[in-house]
Design a protein around this nucleic acid. Sequence first.
RNA 1: GCCGAUGUGGCGAAAUGGCAGACGCAACGGACUUAAAAUCCGUUCCCGUGAAAACGGGGUAUGGGUUCGAAUCCCAUCAUCGGCACCA
Length: 842
Amino acid sequence: MSSERRKPYPFDQIEPKWQAIWDERQIFHAPNPGEKNFDAAKPKFYVLDMFPYPSGAGLHVGHPEGYTATDIIARYKRMRGFNVLHPMGWDAFGLPAEQYAIKSGQHPAVTTRENVSKFKSQLKRIGFSYDWHREINTTDPRYFKWTQWIFLQIYNSWLNPKTNKAEPIKTYRGKNPDEVRLAYVADVLVNWCPELGTVLANEEVVDGKSEVGGFPVVRRPMRQWMLRITAYAERLIDELEGLDWPQGIKLLQRNWIGRSEGAEVDFKIDDKKIRIFTTRPDTLYGATYMVLAPEHSLVDLIVTEEQWPSVRDYREKTARKSDLERTELAKEKTGVFTGAYAINPVNDEKIPIWIADYVLLGYGTGAIMAVPAHDERDLEFARKFNLPIRQVVQPPGDEEPIGFVGDGVAINSPIIDGLPSREAIRKITAWLEERGLGKRAINYKLRDWLFSRQRYWGEPFPIVWEDGKHRVLDESELPVVPPPLEDYKPTGTGEPPLAKAKDWIRYSKKAVRETNVMPQWAGSCWYYLRFCDSHNDKRFVSEKAEKYWMGGGKPGGVDLYVGGTEHAVLHLLYARFWHKVLFDLGYVSKSEPFQRLVNQGIILGEDNQKMSKSRGNIVNPDDVIEQYGADAFRCYEMFMGPLEQMKSWSMRGVEGIARFLARVWRLMMSENQAGQWELSPAVQEVDLTNPQRKILHATTKKVTDDIESFSFNTAISQMMIFVNAFTTAQTIPISAMQPFLVLLNPFAPHLSSELWEKLKLPGQITEQPWPGFDERFLVEDEVEIVIQMNGKVRDRMKMSIQASEEEIKNAALALPKIQELTSDKQIRKVVVIPKKLVNIVL
RNA sequence: GCCGAUGUGGCGAAAUGGCAGACGCAACGGACUUAAAAUCCGUUCCCGUGAAAACGGGGUAUGGGUUCGAAUCCCAUCAUCGGCACCA
């Protein structure tokens, strides 16, 4: 293991050499339309990685997996004649840098700068072909100025239900625009994490604990900034349709948004009414009681004198429950009677009204009709509190009717008796609508996005408060830069740390600044747009650059987006939402940001466990590159298995790939007496033999197809087969090596560049067109045909490729072995698949 | 509980209706070498017959089905991973 050990090939010299050349000559810089060297004749291809959070730990082997895949695609597409946009940047606002600042007293900007420079040098060492000229950092005021600017656009817009599009707020004709703005302030029950001293989005709470750090989270009402993402629920579901995303991710988003169709129905209580939402209006006759969420505003108005103490008591108890407790205690239903009764509109029956925490304020109308016979939760509740259960749906077959929640036939329901459930729903909804008792309605699980955080290290809001009212700053006042602070610690009271900057918050005599900051997701909601034009100080992105890189014939702008599944709902939903707002306002040309999405699988440690510090199974890319080189590292990451799959690291596997690359090297290079590498004398300008030509064309075809389908592992296998076929050859034809090096280039760019130079091939390898192949060289005159009997292989024979089915059949039946096996048997059928096989059925 | 994905040698995997295990790792044998490393060549799913070449049988989580033919399509079950989880 000593570093003195001779390298199987001198990657330690050639890799830094080529990285320096690429850097110096700006080989991978993609000019924008209108800039020098821009070639308008070429089509564009935008290939994007999910940019990393530059943590102190540096890169791990999971990061470069997706990055290598996109780098292969980027290099391949350039050779295919595309203008390729392939950028990289840093998502650098967020909790870890701030937590570290609290501990060490070092300003987050300082640690961020250090971490970025470490990440960048690690990425460069792997030889990625990023256009570093376009590098961005979400914590750079020149960047977050535009994050704040986009917030202004969101704040100054509303969704016009008539057009289902965002419009400037001035087109709103109502009295109070603050009620419809896409960014608004509201008192909401939030997820408050005392340990982190901040509120969290629903999406950031996992099993009642914070996703970052795993600290307990409690419900607490607070005044917060919200983004009206729910206004886009329908479009966020519908417009998934045109995207080339994995079905699973689309489903995850659909489920998260959670669309359900049903009806809203009004139940009368004296002179008031309660509106409920149900997906099963056909079960209205089975409603035997109602439940309101404990926090429902109507509770105060309807509760009777004698029930008041227990109702108050119950409400207090549920308010104190954390989310975790609410779900953990879900096994046992709880609730209390309000003393009030409502009238069921279909049969004028008087039914009791309860409150229970299994009904959520935030979904639907916060009130339900309970149909215990056909809803599991209602049934459980009814059984516990001895409420009546009435069957109104007859299940198909002999299923148990009580507790049946599927579709059947309506019974005990005069208006709809005998109708199948779907029809019954339609009929009763129409019946309700005619009488003004209810209407068709759609509900979404998706909640508005809680957009403020009580932290330091994030984008300040471009907002000031005056006389208790918020207003936005002018564009000219951007960026709003966070003030320097001695102490970043959360206050613990829910007041943001920025409130400690007494001078900074004082905006004018009358106005004070908003002290919340935006969540970490803000910066990543639009970074792909900034990459199109990252130095623009007049606009978040120029129209021209946006139109070019984010344009095209598809709904989504970025042609290929690669990253982990962990962002399936959060980042990808938020970014789509922002993009749609910008699209509606006319700032971007497509309604979706990402046309094609590919998820890379996570890489486990050698022990098949998730890599983690505590397990000590973390693989550091630097160590791998030190020992085997960047090309081997890249190729191994791709050779491990299908990109999307979860897979385990193996150092032995890296060695195998390193051996392959060394074989490529020695195919063309040999050592002289002095132990120096020089061009092998076997490399000559000779004609290819037929088998050589065949394998070259087969390899070209397979590598091309496999890159297109992201099957990088099998592309590498094929190149191994190619190399194995040439290792024994007496002479190595240059005419085979030249295209092969181009095929290898996206995978092992350093090695292939060096060999290209050593072979004195013309120009730069990066400027070569992708090799073509000719199908004619792939087909053989003769193919081997397998003879099966009853599906079992019994013999094989060579046949001309042109042989007819009849000829093949006769030839097969004439084979001595087949004659022998069939002589005393009846042949029932013979199946002939030309060029493949014959199956004789006995 | 619900939804989704996955399940193939000692290991990573390939084959997505037509010869299961390409390619790589590991192991074993051989060549080169004073020796080792490196390199090159060969063998390796299981069982049976055979000195061997070979031949026969079985085999893709489990059980069934469709088909001339199934790792691949369908049904059921099990296991692992991921997501959601009182959403009316």
